[in-house]
Amino acid sequence: MKKPMIFSEFFRNNGVVMGSILFFLVAFWIIFLILLPQISMLDYSLHPNPINLDAGERADEYTLKNYKYLIFGPEGSSDAFNKVDLMVFVRTIIAAMAVTIMNLFLCYPLAYFLAQSKGGGFVRLLVILLIVPYWINEILRAFALRIIFAPSENGLINGIMMKMGLIDQAYDFINTDIALYAGLGYAYILLMLFPMYNVIESLDRNQIEAARDMGASWTRIHRRVVIPHAKPGIASGMTMVFMLSAGALAAPQVLGGTSSLWFTQLVYQWFNDTLNWQQGAAYAIVLLVASIAIVLTFMKIFKVNMGDIGK
């Protein structure tokens, strides 16, 4: 990574007026769009809910009770832990990982094909076809999938399978979570595809040919040449898909079954239904910190640098 430009040099290169505008915009972005919302969220999570104070509690005092609630549940409950919410949390993380890995296996061959085939115009058309659906709002796309997976003869897949006589009874894609996984995978697939496409495209084709010339099988070429080269892109894609899947709300709301609660839905309920923003903030912070910790751990294991991801 390059060293950040020293301020004086920055102003000299861009002029005082343009330099000030750029500097102000960056400062605005960092302070108002990144730092303040997170700090305010953290602050909320450390206060009790003012309309629901315990005896002797003050609304402006700091407390960890919101975090305790997530772990141990309401005071006086018969269970030692808040089993229900913790289960939802763990399930969300594992499901987000599953979605990430599923997208990885879907996207790698696709990215390789797009990047290394000599198709030219044809490949560009394919890439545009991949992008076009994303001009439509995420929630609308989730509803479209809901229609495709609907568990009755009106559903696209069920309808076709029943007409063809493959099944008598409509299959419940919703409650088996198949629709949810498909929806989550679909929602963020481009964020996996494009970073991988970019790095694989930058791979010198001669390296692949050199490996082949030396007798390497396709699996070895990918293991030793393509994947090591593509690692930053793979890491970048996996990080984004994992973070966004774990924090997704639209797909779980629209496509989730009755029994499958996503952790973000709990956060949403605290904010929206219970109006307990403090508790919701604590849940959100836990999800954020846990997700970042998981990403950092995996980056450590697979020896990926933070700088590589930002490329």
Binding site: D204, N206, A210, A211, D213, A216, H229
Partner: peptide, 21 residues
């Protein structure tokens, strides 16, 4: 016979050394 099956070795114009090995 593909390039991996022939008794030839090719040196590329840009050498194509593997940068990560």
């Amino acid at each position: 016979l593909g390039p991996n099956k022939r008794p030839t070795a090719l040196i590329f114009q840009n050498l194509a050394l593997f940068p990560l090995m």
